[in-house]
Design a binder for these strands. Structure first.
Lengths: 201, 201
DNA sequence: TGCTATTCGTACTGTGTGGTACCAAAACAA
DNA sequence: TTGTTTTGGTACCACACAGTACGAATAGCA
C-alpha cells in the first residue's frame, strides 16, 4: 500500500469506487483471460468512463498490475497459508491437491497462472509483479520441501530446488486444466500420481 | 490432399509459391505464437500481397489450419513414430524424454501445444483440427500404454486412459517449458521424475 | 487483333484497440 | 459572488487488425 490519498478537501466529489472497479477488473481477467479483456470492456462492466479509469490507474499496465496485487492478497495468500501450515509432508500435499483439484475458487483457473502463461503480452509493471510472485512461490515450495527433508519425511536423491519447481509446475498444470473444463476427478487423479513421487521410496 | 489444382492452361501465371508461404506461416506461428502473428505480418515476411494470400487460403482460419496440417505432417509425425516404435516401455519413455527435453526442433516449443493452449482464439476449422490431433495423440498414448500392460511391463492400479492423459500432459508441460526458455537439463530432470511413476512399483 | 481467364497488388472498408483533449459539473475557499 | 480545484464523461486520436473492390498485368485461344 504505497498509495495514500489524503482525501482532498476541495473539488468535485468522486463517485467512482476504485475498489469496486478493481474487483470488476480482477474478476474479468480471472474468469476469462487477461489478454481477452479490453479496457473498454472493463469500463463498461464497471459503469465508469475511460478517463476515470486512466486517472485512477494510469494505464492498462497499471490496472492489470493492481488487479494482480489484489488477487495475490485475496486468493494467492491462501496457497501460502497451506504451504506454511506445518502439518507435515503428506497432509500438506493432500491439502494442495484438494485446493488445486476441487476448490471452487479455482474452477476457472488462476489469474496468476494465466498471466504467467501469457507473460509476453503483459505490460512491464505487471510482468515484473508476475515474476516476483513466481519467485515467492518457488521459495515457499522450497522452504516447505526443505522442512520435510529436515524432518526426514522426504528421502534424498532430488535437490530441493528441483523438487520445488516440479511441485509448483504440477500444481500450475492441474489448475490450468481446471480452467479448460477438465473433470476435477481426473485432475485429482493425475495430480495425485504426479505428487506420489514425494511420498514413495 | 483434397486440393487438386488442375493447373489452368489460361490466365496470368502465378508467381506465388503456396508451399513457401505456408512454410513462412508455420514457422512464424511456431517460433512466436499463433495469436501474436497477424496476416499482415505473414504477407510481409512471405513477400506477397494480402489478396494473394486470401485467394489461396480463404481466411486466417484457413491459413492457420493449413499451417497446422503441415506441422502435423512434418513435425508431429515424429512423435507418433516414437510411440509406435514398439521398443518397450522404458526405451520408448526415454525416447520421449529425449525428444521433449533436448530435440532442437522443440527449442521454441510446439505449434500444436501453443494452439491448444489458446484454443478459444482460433478459428473454427483450426480449432476442430486441434481437437482431432489431440484425440489422435490421446489414442496413440493409450495404445502404447495398453501394449506395455499387455507385455506385463506396467502394473495395474491406474487406468490406461488416465495414464495416457497423464503422459500426454507431462510431455506437453515439458515442451511448453522449453518454449519459455527453461534449462533443458532441468526439464529433463522434472520430466524423468514425472514419468518415473510408470517404471516403479 | 480481340476475347477470355486467371493472378497480381494498390488502396480501401469497417471495427476494435489503448489512450487523451477538452469542457461541464460539483465541491470548497476567498 | 468569484475563483480554484478536483472529478465527471463525450468525443475524439492514431494505429493495427481481418478482409475486399477493383483495375492492371499476363497468359492462351479465337
Amino acid at each position: 500500500m504505497s498509495e495514500a490519498d489524503p482525501k482532498p478537501t476541495r473539488g468535485r466529489p468522486k463517485t467512482m469506487n476504485a475498489e469496486q472497479v478493481l474487483d470488476v477488473a480482477m474478476t474479468a481477467y480471472w474468469q476469462s483471460d487477461p489478454a481477452d479483456v479490453s479496457v473498454n470492456a472493463i469500463c463498461q462492466m464497471a459503469g465508469i468512463s475511460k478517463p476515470s479509469l486512466y486517472r485512477e490507474f494510469g494505464s492498462e499496465d497499471g490496472l492489470s498490475r493492481a488487479a494482480l496485487d489484489r488477487y495475490a492478497e485475496q486468493v494467492l495468500s491462501e496457497m501460502f497459508v497451506i504451504l506454511n501450515g506445518g502439518t507435515g509432508l503428506r497432509a500438506t500435499l493432500d491439502a494442495l491437491i484438494d485446493f488445486a483439484s476441487d476448490d471452487p475458487r479455482m474452477e476457472t483457473g488462476c489469474l496468476f497462472y494465466k498471466m504467467r502463461a501469457g507473460k509476453h503480452r503483459l505490460g512491464p509493471d505487471t510482468k515484473v509483479r508476475v515474476e516476483e510472485i513466481d519467485a515467492a512461490g518457488q521459495a515457499a515450495y522450497a522452504a516447505f520441501l526443505q522442512a520435510a527433508r529436515d524432518a526426514r519425511e522426504w528421502p534424498d536423491g532430488l535437490s530441493v530446488e528441483a523438487g520445488a519447481k516440479y511441485l509448483g509446475e504440477q500444481i500450475a498444470l492441474a489448475i490450468t486444466q481446471r480452467a479448460s473444463g477438465e473433470d476435477p476427478a481426473r485432475i485429482r487423479e493425475m495430480l495425485t500420481l504426479a505428487l506420489s513421487v514425494f511420498t514413495r521410496p
